[in-house]
Write a protein that binds this DNA or RNA. Structure first.
Lengths: 228, 228
DNA sequence: GTAATAGTGTCTTTGAGACATTATCTA
DNA sequence: TAGATAATGTCTCAAAGACACTATTAC
């Protein structure tokens, strides 16, 4: 009775911040369909694999990134009957946030990979329905910064308050008052925790280093400036 | 190269409020596996069907509910290799919120359907991984009330502020100050909009009737009382 | 010293929490 | 009339926004 003719894929919206801009990792497809076009990295789920496992594996295989260095969460599933000309493919999209490591971004296949600025890539035509998946991923990331400490996922394990603030400013495309942000970061329970260490050798006064706090959710949240 | 041996199902977490308690619609399975056990309503996606379409269809077929009467959104996907003994089934779960219509809840199959109180059903063993799907659905509903006007999805098209407040109190298992809630509902842009009509024939002063506002998100949100 | 950046403090405004009072209906 | 429920108003407190100042480094 059940139709068993489905394939299941995972696609990754892998975001990072480099050169003060939000970037997504794209791969150029080396095989049809959409050969030569840019797409999100991804691949098919194997028959004995859980979805999360497949996402971790694809992250490693297609981008050379170890899952422990990134935050990874399920985003949503996309299953239009004709979204893939090869057949009936349901894609489970994952959102990954990571610091700007000098990651190889070396695709296992001959496909080339590249970080692209979010604000420039939206204009391009991505393969499949990946423009919509990307848009959903970016919006999820923006929303998550409001009520979780996950902004730190874009930073190295130890970071300064100013670095964390630029993450927020970059992802939200806004500017935030450094003093108010500092107060919010310090006083909100479980947002960041001090390491005791400081930066050195930089210009200006050394900054204290923090790591991500243990909170799952920020209370109260750190809301984006209203759209108006 | 892609494994095509997957089946894809949709499962529904259909929530409503009746008798001052949050209820979920469950069906008793008439066929193996898990015969005789309670499960979320759901079924397999057909090969020419989009995921959302399948969710709407299952909502109609398994519960007799028309999608226009409910709020329906994708929740998450579950794909452990052995979550279904019949084979490799990936389930795309949907969350549905609806008013307490005298819905037939008549399963198309011989399966019986029943509304169960959330606080009582958590103890029981549901089929498959449906206990986890249900928990995720309830948490999503609780969170959505904070920053969207979707609490109104539990109400009839026109409702009073007091009715909307009891929705929040029921879903969050808390009590809210009627006067503060009234102020919040009225002054938050796009939360509710007046119809001009009022209740009549009830005890006490008649209440104004409202319908759901147009806002996608509430700003500022209406936060749950802190867990502490 | 100067320039640069980090960190702290204060005032104001907005919004939520606590709570009293008035308004309008049914019985 | 009494009883019930709706709606509004006031005071207080917590937290965000705006903004000035002090602290600590490199040079």
């Amino acid at each position: 009775m059940p139709d068993s003719g489905f394939s299941v894929a995972v696609d990754l919206v892998l975001l990072t911040i480099r050169e003060s801009a939000l970037h997504v990792l794209l791969v150029r497809r080396g095989v049809p369909p959409y050969r030569g076009q840019w797409a999100l990295p991804g691949g098919f789920v194997m028959l004995d694999e859980d979805l999360d496992e497949a996402a971790v594996r694809e992250l490693r295989e297609e981008t050379g990134v170890d899952a422990s260095a990134a935050h990874l969460e399920q985003l949503a599933s996309y299953g239009h009957p004709r979204r893939d000309p090869r057949g009936r493919v349901v894609s489970v999209a994952y959102l990954a946030l990571m610091p700007d490591l000098p990651a190889p971004t070396a695709g296992s296949d001959a496909a080339q990979a590249a970080w692209r600025r979010i604000d420039e890539v939206n204009l391009k035509r991505l393969a499949f329905d990946h423009d919509r998946i990307l848009a959903d991923g970016v919006e999820r990331a923006r929303a998550k910064l409001e009520y979780t400490p996950l902004g730190a996922a874009f930073c190295t394990p130890e970071f300064t308050i100013a670095e964390l603030r630029t993450v927020y400013e970059t992802v939200w495309s806004t500017t935030l008052d450094p003093r108010n942000f500092h107060r919010k970061a310090i006083t909100t329970d479980g947002f960041v925790e001090p390491t005791g260490r400081s930066t050195a050798g930089e210009r200006g006064r050394p900054a204290q280093l923090f790591r991500r706090g243990q909170a799952k959710v920020l209370y109260p949240p750190l809301l984006r400036p209203p759209p108006a």
